[in-house]
């Protein structure tokens, strides 16, 4: 699979990362070589006799009992945000103008 500039810009857009045209070309090339390497390695592995799998790990889930273990370190958690206001994380407005 080739990562073109177009796909790279689309992914950047969805992830809200600002990348300019020149950067996009460089990153596309780099990603191409990484994915190309993986693809080549994968193609070397014989997989004709492999059963399809749903998950990379073969173990199965364990569960947690429904018991409260509150973390109670609000100040510390909020402290890791770049901007806070009134005990909340504060972000640029996301209200849909209508």
């Amino acid at each position: 699979m080739a990562v073109g500039k177009e796909l790279l810009l689309k992914i950047a857009d969805i992830a809200a990362i600002s990348i300019d045209e020149t950067e996009a070309e460089d990153y596309a090339k780099e990603l191409d070589s990484v994915i190309g390497y993986i693809e080549q390695k994968l193609s070397e592995i014989p997989d004709d006799d492999l059963e399809p799998m749903e998950h990379v790990l073969s173990a199965q889930s364990f569960f947690r009992a429904d018991e409260v273990t509150n973390f109670d370190r609000k100040a510390e958690l909020l402290g890791s945000a770049s901007v806070t206001k009134d005990g909340c994380h504060f972000v640029p407005s996301v209200v849909d103008p209508s």
Binding site: R64, V68, N70, F71, K74, L77, L78, C88
Partner: peptide
Amino acid sequence: KTKTKIFCGCKNEFGEEPNTNCCP
């Protein structure tokens, strides 16, 4: 209506002071 959240032990409670039932 569980007592706690789906993947952690924080309280599942409506109407509390903002960001009190949070963890990493």
